[in-house]
Nucleic acid binder design. Structure first.
Lengths: 341, 341
DNA sequence: TTGTATGCGTTATCAG
DNA sequence: CTGATAACGCATACAA
C-alpha cells in the first residue's frame, strides 16, 4: 500500500505538508504544492480513511439500520438517503434489522463498532433499550417511518401522519355505501400499525358503523400465509366484509394474492384501499386507491435532520410528520371521480 | 469513549490480556477472563473497528457499487448480498454509481478510501479503467449483472444468460403469428443490452422474419421520456409492430406508460414480452410474460465468489452465468398455455 | 499464564 | 512557509 510518507518521500517534503496539501488546511508554497500533487499522481496514492478516522475520531460514515423485507420501498428509501448523504460527504453503511429486536440490537452494535458518525433507524416495535444505549453514547440518531410516542434527547424522528389518512380511507368506503369494512395489518408492536389501527377505528365510529372486532385482522409479521389466513377468516364470517383497508404494502400483496385464490377481483367482488402506494401503481391493474408516502422526502428529511444534529448535538429532539397523499384510483370501486396520478 | 485500556484498568490486567480475551486468541486464566468480561460489561465497552482495522489491515467491510435507479431489483439484490455478507461477518458499504462512468469512478474511490476488503460492482458500460485500477490494487472484485467479455485476474463475474432467452421471447411471438416484432432497450453500452439485442436479432433471423432496423429502439439511459419517444416512433411507422420485446424492467415501465397514453392495452392492442420480471407480477394485470432473473441466487453467488477469492486471491477469474426463467403469462396474448407463477 | 513495547496511517500541536 | 513528534485504539512479537 502506498502511504502518505511514500508521497512525502517522492515529493521531498514532510508528511505534514502532504497532509496539509490534501486537506487544504494551511498555506503552502505553490511550488511545493505542485510537487506534492505530482507525487500523489505518480504514486497513485489514495488517502486512507482508517488512519484518518483513528486520528480525527470521525469516519464520515452514516449507518442505516432497517428491514429490507418489511419495507417494499426499501430501495427508494435507501436511495434517497444515500443521495443526500453522499452529497454531504458521507458514506452509507447498511445493516438489516429484519424488524426483529434481537437482530436489530446486533445491527446497531455492528454499526457502532464501525464507528458510524450517526445512524438512521427504522426501529422495531421493541427498540427502547437499543435507543437508550444510543442516547447514552450521545450518537446522533434519526428514527424513520415509525415515530415513538416518547421523545429522547439527541434522537430525531421522521415519518408520515398515519391516523387521519387511514380514517379518511374508511370515510371514503363508508361514503360509497360500505358498512362492513375490514382491516388487515401486520406487526401490532409497530408504531405505524398502532396509529393506522387507531385511524381505522376512528373512521368506523365517526361514520356510525358498528364496531366489530372480527373485522380486524392483525397479521403477525405480515408473512404471506398469515395474510392468507386473515382473508379466509374474513370471508368465512357470517357477515363478511365488502371492503378491506390494507395496513401496509406487504399486507396488500398478501391480501391481493389471497383474494386471487378465492377467485375474487377488486373492486368487483371486494373494495380495496391501502396504506402505502406502489411505484408502478398506474401501469398495472387494479389501480389501487392508496395512501402514498413521500418516500424521497422522508429520506431527504431524515438526512437533513441528521446533518443538523451532527452540527449541533444539543439540538432539542424533533419529530417531523409529513403528510401522505391519497391517490384516488379504482380499486375502491367508485369510478366516477378518479384523480390519481 | 471507553477503550480497551479502560477495561484493562477496571479488570486490573493489561490491555494485551483484554485483547486476547475478546479475540479468544490465547489461553487465559478463567478467573482473569471472568474479571475482564465483567469489566467489559461494567464499562459498556465496545471494540473499536477502526483501531483494529488500522492494526490488522482488514475492515471486515464489503463495498457495493451499483445504480439504484437502473435496477428495480435493487432492494432485492442489496438484501441478498447483505444477508450472505453479514453471515460471513462482514458489513456492507453502499455507493451509488447512477450507471454513470464518472460517478462510478467516484464511488469506487470512496469505497477504496474506506478500505473495503472487497467490492461487488454492477459495472457501467465504460468501467474498464476503473476495473484495471482495482486489479492493480489487487482488491477482490465481483461484477454483477453485466459480464464483460474480457477476463481480468482477480475479477469474478456473475449474471444471467441474456442472448438465448431473448431469442426465445422472439420465438414465442413469432410462433403465435407476429411478424412485426419490435424491441426497446436502454443504454447500448451495457453488456446486458448488447447481449439481449443480439438475442433479438437471432430470434428475428431464425424465424425468417425481415430484419428491420426501424423496429429497434435503443433508449438512452432508459429515461421515461425517451421510452415515450421510442413508442411514438414505433407506432408512427408505416407498418407498425404488433409486438414489443422490452429489454429491461425500466424500459417495461416506460413502455407500458407510453402505451397507456396511446390508449392501448396489452395484449389486446399490442403483445408485450419483457426481459426482467416484477416482484408482484402475479397480482397485478396485465400479467407480464417475462424472463425472470434469479435475483437471490445472483446476490448469494456474488458473495460466495467474493469469499472464495478473499480466502485465495490467486484463484483464476470465474465468470458464472445463471439461467433465467421464462414466466409465461398473459401479456403476450397467447392465453391457452399460461404456466407462470 | 501474563505483560511491555511497537507500529499500523493519519493529523494536531508545537517549534522553527 | 515547513517539519518533527506524538497520539488516536488496537493486535502482535517478544519477553518474562
Amino acid at each position: 500500500m502506498v502511504t502518505m510518507r511514500d508521497v512525502a518521500r517522492v515529493a521531498q517534503v514532510s508528511a505534514t505538508t502532504v497532509s496539509h496539501v490534501i486537506n487544504k488546511t494551511r498555506k503552502v508554497d505553490p511550488e511545493t504544492e505542485r510537487a506534492v500533487l505530482e507525487a500523489i499522481e505518480a504514486t497513485g496514492y489514495l488517502s486512507d480513511g482508517i488512519g484518518r478516522s483513528l486520528r480525527t475520531g470521525t469516519t464520515q460514515t452514516i449507518g442505516l439500520a432497517m428491514s429490507a423485507i418489511s419495507n417494499p420501498y426499501f430501495g427508494t428509501v435507501v436511495h434517497a438517503i444515500e443521495r443526500s448523504i453522499s452529497r454531504a460527504g458521507y458514506s452509507l453503511l447498511l445493516a438489516d434489522t429484519h424488524d426483529d429486536p434481537v437482530r436489530e440490537r446486533r445491527a446497531v452494535r455492528d454499526l457502532l463498532s464501525h464507528r458510524v458518525d450517526a445512524m438512521v433507524i427504522a426501529p422495531s416495535g421493541e427498540a427502547d433499550s437499543v435507543l437508550d444505549a444510543l442516547v447514552q453514547r450521545r450518537i446522533p440518531v434519526v428514527l424513520i417511518d415509525r415515530i415513538p410516542t416518547r421523545e429522547r434527547p439527541g434522537v430525531d424522528a421522521i415519518g408520515v401522519v398515519n391516523e387521519e389518512p387511514t380514517a379518511r380511507l374508511v370515510d371514503h368506503l363508508a361514503q360509497i355505501g360500505h358498512s362492513r369494512i375490514a382491516t388487515i395489518t401486520s406487526d401490532p408492536m409497530l408504531e405505524t400499525t398502532i396509529e393506522r389501527l387507531s385511524g381505522y377505528w376512528n373512521g368506523i365510529e365517526r361514520n356510525g358503523l358498528t364496531r366489530d372486532e372480527d373485522l380486524v385482522q392483525v397479521g403477525v409479521r405480515g408473512s404471506e400465509e398469515t395474510t392468507d389466513d386473515a382473508v379466509a377468516t374474513l370471508l368465512g364470517l357470517p357477515e363478511p366484509p365488502t371492503a378491506i383497508v390494507m395496513g401496509n404494502n406487504q399486507v396488500t400483496i398478501g391480501t391481493m394474492a389471497a383474494l386471487q385464490h378465492h377467485h375474487m377481483e377488486a373492486p368487483r367482488d371486494m373494495a380495496l384501499v391501502a396504506f402505502d402506494d406502489f411505484p408502478w401503481a398506474n401501469i398495472f391493474r387494479p389501480r389501487l386507491t392508496a395512501v402514498s408516502q413521500p418516500v424521497d422526502e422522508l429520506g431527504a428529511g431524515a438526512v437533513s435532520m441528521l446533518l443538523d444534529r451532527l452540527a449541533d448535538r444539543d439540538l432539542p429532539p424533533r419529530h417531523r410528520r409529513l403528510e401522505p397523499t391519497l391517490k384516488h384510483r379504482e380499486s375502491c370501486g367508485c369510478t366516477g371521480l378518479s384523480t390519481g396520478t
